[in-house]
Amino acid sequence: MMIVTTPYIEGREVQKYFGIVNGEGLIGANVYKDIFSGVRDVVGGRTSTYERELRKTREIALDSMKEKAQQLGANAILNVRIKYSNLGGTMGNTILVSVNGTAVLLD
């Protein structure tokens, strides 16, 4: 399954459009991660714990989208967009990773 951010793949023609497919993943930051992340931000450096968690959550969202496209008979997803949203409020430091694109059948 090809997953690309472009609206087409050079040298390949779309045989069929299946429509929009999407996937979501949630990551909840707990108090200990928040504390250690804050300490690291003060001293400098990267917050690798958050980076790892975001990467895993993004993969979950992409896998979910890919599964939906495969069920439709697609072999590619074009024009993929990834969005990160902090749900905040009653959800604490919950981050939603959402992805969407157009499922297609390429030649």
Rank of each mutant, 00 (worst) to 15 (best):
I3M: 14
P7H: 11
Y8M: 11
E10K: 02
G11W: 03
E13Q: 08
Q15H: 09
Q15Y: 07
K16C: 04
K16G: 05
K16F: 09
Y17W: 10
F18G: 12
F18T: 09
I20Q: 08
I20T: 13
I20P: 00
V21T: 05
V21Q: 00
G25K: 01
G25F: 03
N30L: 06
V31F: 15
D34S: 10
F36A: 05
G38K: 12
V39R: 13
V42E: 10
V42L: 11
G44W: 06
S48V: 12
T49L: 10
T49Y: 12
T49I: 14
Y50L: 11
Y50G: 09
E51F: 02
E51Y: 02
E53F: 12
L54G: 12
K56S: 13
T57Q: 01
R58P: 00
E59P: 01
L62W: 02
L62P: 00
S64R: 15
K66E: 15
Q71I: 04
I77A: 01
N79L: 08
V80N: 00
Y84S: 10
G88Q: 10
G88H: 05
G89W: 10
M91D: 08
M91G: 00
G92M: 07
N93P: 04
I95T: 15
L96C: 09
S98V: 05
S98P: 01
N100Q: 15
V104G: 00
L105C: 02
L105V: 02
L106T: 10
